[in-house]
Each structure stands twice: as structure tokens, then as C-alpha cells.
Design a binder for these strands. Structure first.
Lengths: 242, 242
DNA sequence: CAATAAAAATGAGTTATACTCAATTTTTGG
DNA sequence: CCAAAAATTGAGTATAACTCATTTTTATTG
């Protein structure tokens, strides 16, 4: 407030304020009733605007939903940054990030599920990869620091670790939610396990990593590829001969 | 046509045949145009029935979609069973399952995406957990055998490993698909990495032996297994071609 | 085979709802 | 205060899922 309170809001500010109100109400409604359960008429009534106005803010219902989702991701990205203590060693930050992510996914599971409603119309949409990337970049930064410091092996392939990290946490969230009691013991178990796994697999003092390509490892991989080639070929022959 | 030649189908058989045709056409259409992109009228026309008839087979559009999804999961569950060689040691089977799952997820990503769109909040639906469970039970069986045999530590918590397994594979599928070229090198990398991770984390002698087991030994073992596969297959061919 | 009942199929009509647009109100700058 | 631009309105339209009275097909029985 203060002095500026006298100044009338600019047109732009008014529009933005209304857009925010709309997004906020939409988020609550979508969460409560699901995408299809929300009638644009109801939404309009709740925000005290006309139905038609919605369409001067968003092209259509699914773009509105998209706006809601983008906001959500922005928020949890901020949360992720806040969750890790700046001075901590990377592996501790990774731990904190894991705890934050697991908790967030569990707490917002209904909402994340909703996210998928967006993928229904074949065409447009899809939660912008950029928003997700902003989020996962927190992880990448920590990893890079860990590698620079020598906590993790220099040959570590970050995207492999990233997929394990987020993949494991999200699947575990589902499992934990599926139980009657979502115990924090389970959550700790998941996180500790995941971190230990990463340490054993990529820790600087863990020997012979798959990606560090000791000669024997390279040979093994080559062997696997050869085997696969033959196996596939044999399959083809089988099909042809039957 | 011919009275005697073909036994006339029973009513039940006819209905089932039509239901199958409907499901099959629906699957193709949903995949091609997305859930919202499919008009029940079009679908009816393609299957050569009236629009109303659809609703004597399925309560509504989303139940039809659900039927399609259930069918799909049943198919890939069969595929998973078929993908693992019965006599192989558990860790080999786990490897094969991983390869199968990753390939399946990548090949059917559009469809799986559609699957998730079913999770509309509010009312009914949701892909029956049972169908997914039938699928993941393949994994559980392998794990149990691995633990029984002593390949994995007896204290291994299966659900933790399961979540890492499927979580990692599905996230990696996304990453791999996101690239312009979905290389099989990447796929092998993901699978090998995942398996190695499980071995290091849960291998019966993980602590002591991970780093001490001679790589050459492992390679030799693998080589033996490959040789056996070929010998068996070649025997089969000989028998078939004589 | 005809008569009859049961089952299945039909498609015109109903309903629900996202979205449009001509008309109206509000805001802004001169 | 005026006029142009911007924003808002809500009645009306379009679309597509779904219903249901009627018709057609199939099985059954004497």
C-alpha cells in the first residue's frame, strides 16, 4: 500500500491481477473436480467475471489448464532451490533435493495426475518441456558440482543418474501413496537407498563403472551388442521360416 | 453363407467378435487422433455399426478407452513373459525384462501417454491397478528367484528395487525419445547401468565382491550363456529343416 | 414352419457445454 | 468532456456424447 495506493492500477496491472485470480481459482477447481468436471460457467461465476471473459485471457480451456500447470512447476522449482542449503556439500544437497521431491510429489499427486489430462488432445499442449527443465536443472547443477569437486567420478553420465533419480522417486511416491499409511519411514528408506545407490555406482572411489570404460567393460559391452545382433537375426529367421 | 460349411456363430460369439473389432478400431483411432480427437460417430462408421450400438458394448467413451488400455496391458504382460528365457539365471532374465520394457515403452510411448490421460480425477476410471500388477509381477517373480538362489541379498526390499527398475526405465525412455536419434547404444547403456546398479546395491556379496570379482570371469560366463543360446537355436533349426 | 419371445441394432432426437461475437460498458489520452 | 481503444458481457451457436422408442435379427418352442 503506502503512497502508491492512491495511484490507480494500470490497465496492464488490472489484467494481470485478474489473470492471477483466474488461474488461482482454476487450480482449486481443477484439483477439486478434475479437468472435465470443471464447467467454464462455474469458473466464471467463482471469479466473478463473465464466461466470455475467460476467453480473452486464455484461448481455450486447455490453455488455461496449461497456465495452471506452468505456475505449479514454477512454484515447485522455487521450492527445490529453497530446499537445498547453499553451502552444503553436493551429496547432501542431493539428499535434500530427493526428500523435497518425494514429499512434493506425494503431496501433489492428484495435481500431477491432472497434468496428464493435458495430454489428451493429440495436437497442441503438453506441459512445456522448458518448465520441467527449469526444475530438473537444480539436479544438474548439483551433479556438476559433485563431479567438479571429485565426489562423483568424472565419467558420470548425468542424464542416466537424473533418470534414475526422478524415475525412482516418482515411482516410489506412487507405491507409498498406494499404502494405507504413508509412513515417513518409507520415505526415508527410499531416499537413503537412492543416495546410497548413486554413491556406490558413481562415487569417485567406486571402481569399474559401466561408463568409465575399463577395457574389460568395453569388451563386455561390445559382446552384448554382438549377442543382440545375433539374437535379433535369429528371431527374423524364425519368423521367416514359420 | 453356406448352411453346413461354417457353423453359424452363436449370439455370444458374434457379440464378442464385434466387441473385439470395436476395441481394435478404437485403439487405432485413439492412437491416431487422441482421445478427444475420436468422434463416436466416426468410430461407429469404421466398425460398420450404428453409433448407438457402441453404447450397448461400453457404458461410455471412457470405458471403451479403458477396455483398449486393459487389452494393451494384457498384451505387453504376455510379451514380458515371452521375453525372458525360462531357464536363464534370474539376473539374466532381469536384463531381458529391462530390455523388453524399455523397448516397449519407447515403441508405445504415444499410447502409454494416452493411458495416463484416463486418470481423470473425480469419478470412476483409472487404469485398473490389477492390470499393471499382472505386469509387474513378472519382475517380482524374478526377484524372488534371485533372492532364493542367493544371487541377491536376502534382505533385499523388492518394492524398492521395483520402483527403481520401472521408474528408471520409464524416465530413460522419455529422455531417449526426446533425442533426435533414439540410438540402441543409449538403450543398452541404460539397461546395463541399471542392472549394474542393482547388482552393486543388492548383490549377495555386494560389499566385498563388487570390486574384486574378476571381470574376465563375468565375461566368460556371459560368453557361455550366449554360446548355449546359439547351440540350442541351431539345433532347433536343424530339426525343422530336416 | 410359424409363432413368439428375447436380444441386438438403429439413428433421430436430446442434452450438455465449450466457445463465439455483436452489443455494451469501462478506461484512457488529449 | 469526447472519442477511440480496450475490456466485458451473455445470449446464441456448434459440436459431440449419449438416450430411447422403434425396428430388425436371432433363438426357441410346439
Amino acid at each position: 500500500m503506502g503512497r502508491a495506493s492512491a495511484r490507480p492500477l494500470t490497465r496492464r496491472e488490472k489484467v494481470e491481477r485478474k489473470e492471477k485470480a483466474l488461474l488461482s481459482a482454476a487450480r482449486a477447481l481443477f484439483l477439486e473436480r478434475g479437468y472435465d468436471g470443471v464447467r467454464t460457467a462455474d469458473l466464471a461465476k467463482r471469479v466473478q467475471i463473465s464466461e466470455g471473459s475467460i476467453y480473452s485471457y486464455f484461448k481455450n480451456k486447455s490453455e488455461l489448464m496449461q497456465g495452471v500447470v506452468v505456475d505449479f512447476w514454477r512454484e515447485i522449482a522455487e521450492g527445490a532451490h529453497a530446499a537445498i542449503a547453499a553451502g552444503d556439500p553436493p551429496m547432501e544437497q542431493l539428499h535434500d533435493l530427493a526428500v523435497y521431491h518425494l514429499a512434493t510429489v506425494i503431496d501433489n499427486f492428484d495435481f500431477l495426475d491432472l497434468t496428464f489430462s493435458l495430454r489428451r488432445a493429440g495436437e497442441d499442449i503438453i506441459v512445456s518441456r522448458d518448465d520441467v527443465r527449469t526444475y530438473t536443472s537444480v539436479f544438474d547443477e548439483i551433479m556438476n558440482r559433485a563431479i567438479d569437486r571429485g565426489d562423483l567420478a568424472s565419467g558420470t553420465v548425468i542424464w542416466l543418474v537424473r533418470d534414475t533419480f526422478y524415475g525412482t522417486l516418482e515411482y516410489s511416491a506412487r507405491t507409498i501413496l498406494g499404502r494405507s499409511t504413508k509412513s515417513s519411514t518409507d520415505m526415508n528408506l527410499v531416499v537413503d537407498n537412492l543416495l546410497e545407490q548413486i554413491r556406490r555406482m558413481y562415487g569417485a572411489n567406486a571402481q569399474s563403472q559401466v561408463n568409465s570404460q575399463s577395457p574389460n567393460e568395453a569388451i563386455t559391452q561390445r559382446l552384448e551388442r554382438i549377442a543382440e545382433t545375433f539374437e535379433v537375426t535369429i528371431e527374423q529367421f524364425k519368423r521367416q521360416n514359420s
